[in-house]
């Protein structure tokens, strides 16, 4: 059972991707929803909105404690929240993977794009990646493993039980990265 944080954003798309590989999901909107799950997804959306809602709902602290050991996959806004630092004090970070996120680093919506990625460690070519007002990851520390690059940017990163993408695998029908998260992180860490 994977918990998908469902306060705002692309949570339904993540549940769809996980469902397509036979994984059941639960929407996480309160502390009680964190009980007896095996992994978590922090979806795409607006990181300022998510920060506000997580704090207003008293979900920040329990989630922060859970994320110490719980396998987690964050995309875009979710990846920003999982980082060590962010370039914007309107957003708070869980500090679970060692990089600094720079918000909207490619520009506004008019600079959003799609591209094809190679995922060498997943032995996979041609992953169709959708970047929406995407962040960039800077000051990436040792111990953080890069699973995909786009030009000079690392766009899919992993540190132990934490997986973070600056793009949106949940917006496509290709569940390769979700499957990697479940097989290589959730099943091995629980």
């Amino acid at each position: 059972m994977i918990g998908v944080v469902a306060l705002q954003g692309s949570f339904a798309k993540h549940a769809h991707s996980l469902g397509s590989i036979g994984v059941t999901c639960r929407a996480v909107r309160s502390e009680a929803d964190l009980k007896s799950i095996d992994g978590l997804v922090l979806p795409g959306g607006e990181s300022t909105t998510m920060t506000t809602l997580l704090q207003n709902e008293g979900l920040w602290e329990p989630l922060n404690a859970t994320l110490e050991t719980m396998p987690v996959f964050g995309t875009c806004a979710g990846a920003i929240l999982l980082g060590q630092q962010v370039d914007d004090d309107r957003v708070k970070c869980f500090d679970k993977i060692q990089y600094k996120a720079v918000r909207n680093a490619y520009g506004r919506q008019i600079e959003s794009f799609t591209t094809s990625l190679i995922l060498p460690k997943l032995n996979y070519h041609d992953f169709h990646a959708v970047f929406i007002r995407a962040p960039k990851f800077e000051n990436i520390q040792q111990g953080v493993d890069s699973l995909a690059v786009y030009g000079p940017e690392h766009v899919l990163l992993r540190q132990d039980h934490v997986l973070a993408a600056s793009f949106h695998p949940e917006l496509t029908d290709d569940a390769t990265i979700h499957k990697y998260f479940v097989d290589e992180i959730v099943l091995k860490y629980r």
């Binding site: 469902a6 705002q8 954003g9 795409g44 959003s112 799609t114």
Partner: peptide, 20 residues
């Protein structure tokens, strides 16, 4: 890289879901 794609346009709307 491609920019003027419908999925990039609807993609932003997907990120706004459950919001105001």
């Amino acid at each position: 890289m491609a920019k003027n794609l419908f999925e990039v346009k609807t993609g932003l709307a997907e990120m706004l879901k459950g919001g105001v």
